[in-house]
Amino acid sequence: MSLYFVTILTNMTLISFIAISAYLILIVGEVSFGQQAFFGIGAYITATLTTLLGLDIVIALFFSFMVSASFALVLSVLTIRLSGFYFAVASLSFAELFRLSLYKIEYTVETNSGTVGPNGPEGFQNIRWIFENNVSPDNFLVIAVSSLLALIILLIFMENSKLFKNARLVGKDQIVAQSIGIRPFFYRVGFITLAGGVAGFGGGLFALFNTYIEPSMFGIMLGVHGLAYSIIGGLGYPLGPLIGVFIDIGLLESVRFLSEYRMILFGGLVAAILIIFPEGIISPRLISRIKRKLVKKTNA
């Protein structure tokens, strides 16, 4: 595979983590404009742990997951009484707060591979893990894709569990969910936390791949894209967000020959998809229709 192709695929894989984290929050019925912050937290944590402390990538990514999830936990508990627009705005404010604080965090150390550590607006440079460990772009793609696949398979297995079913019910109608004995806040807090962790994990991979991160990378457009991918892909099944990513980045890259006109084309395409599939491509309705067909078949 050409380097160009590998890079595109890796970027698609990494942004899928944000799309999935947006998806996890959407299924409990909330909209978050702040997932880019958890992606950023994960990126900075992995960068710090691998360069300053020289920790293994597995441990670094684990901490990226845990720390981002903890921030998400705090955010979800603080916003427990907010929903709809109010939650969306709260998540955005949190993300901006995080991004702007990054400009003020400066802690650098000189090492033989250059200056490392968060350095305010200059960003975090020389994240040389892939060079030091001789990881080729192809190998990194394998690492990223296999983590993503593991996550997707886990989510697909969980789709039939009481945990995920109840979460979807809370997303559909919180009042009814409560009235049949479901504890809505548990699912809200749980899924927002999990979503934070997933975004953080993806952010960690992003830092390693990019070898350089700076605060402006974690602006609102990153979160909006993640959100858009899961909405285009649909909330019916964990593959939805991936389809959204594929349609966006995949198509965007494949029509590069159209140069400056391709963004116009792309905007129209997204609008057209949402007109034809108002609930996304793999909508919950589609999934329940397929499931009913399968059940009928086994009954017959």
């Binding site: 559909k172 109608d173 009235s179 309705r285």
Partner: peptide, 12 residues
């Protein structure tokens, strides 16, 4: 347990 004044079901 209860029912609602405006019917609330999981319609899909």
């Amino acid at each position: 347990s209860r029912t609602f004044q405006n019917i609330r079901l999981f319609k899909d």
